[in-house]
Computed example of a mutant assay.
Amino acid sequence: MKPPAPYLPVPSPALSQADHEALSDLYIRGTPANTLRAYERDLIYVTAWKQARFDLPLRWPESEATALAFILDHARDLGDAPEEDIARQTAEALILQGLRKSLTCPAPSTLDRRIASWLAFHRMKNLTSPFGTPQVKQARSKARRAAARPPAPKSQHPVTRDILEQLLAICRGSRRDCRDRAILMLGWASGGRRRSEITGLMFEDVSLKDFEEKSLVWISLLETKTTTKGETPRLVLKGRAAQALVHWIEVGEIQDGPLFRPISKADRVLKRRLSPDAVYQIVKHRLKLAGLPEDFASPHGLRSGFLTQAALDGAPLQAAMRLSLHRSMAQAQKYYDDVDIADNPATDLLG
Rank of each mutant, 00 (worst) to 15 (best):
P3S: 07
Y7V: 02
V10P: 02
P13T: 07
D19I: 06
H20V: 01
Y27L: 10
P32F: 07
L36N: 04
A38G: 14
Y45N: 11
R53Y: 13
P61L: 05
E64V: 14
E64N: 06
E64T: 15
A67G: 03
I71E: 00
R76K: 14
R76F: 01
G79H: 11
D80S: 13
P82M: 09
E84W: 12
D85Y: 11
Q89C: 11
L94M: 12
L94N: 08
I95K: 10
Q97N: 03
Q97K: 14
S102K: 09
A107L: 06
P108E: 04
I115N: 01
M124D: 01
K125D: 04
S129K: 05
P134M: 04
Q135N: 10
A139G: 04
A146Y: 07
P150Q: 07
P150C: 05
P151V: 06
A152E: 12
S155I: 04
Q156S: 10
T160L: 04
I163A: 08
L168W: 03
A169E: 03
A169P: 10
C171W: 00
C171I: 08
G173R: 09
R175G: 11
R176I: 13
I183M: 08
L184I: 09
A189T: 05
G192T: 02
R193Y: 04
E197Q: 11
E204S: 15
D205V: 01
D210Q: 14
W218N: 03
S220P: 05
L221K: 03
L222Y: 13
L222V: 14
K225C: 06
T226K: 05
T226L: 12
G230T: 12
T232G: 05
P233N: 02
L235N: 08
G239P: 13
W248R: 06
I249L: 11
V251M: 15
E253D: 14
F260I: 07
R261M: 04
R268I: 14
L270G: 14
R272P: 00
S275E: 12
S275F: 08
D277W: 12
K284T: 08
H285V: 00
E294Q: 13
A297G: 00
H300Q: 08
G301N: 01
L307I: 05
D313K: 09
A315H: 11
A320L: 04
M321H: 04
S324Q: 02
H326T: 09
R327I: 02
A330H: 09
Y335W: 08
Y336H: 12
D338M: 13
V339R: 07
D340E: 15
G351N: 10
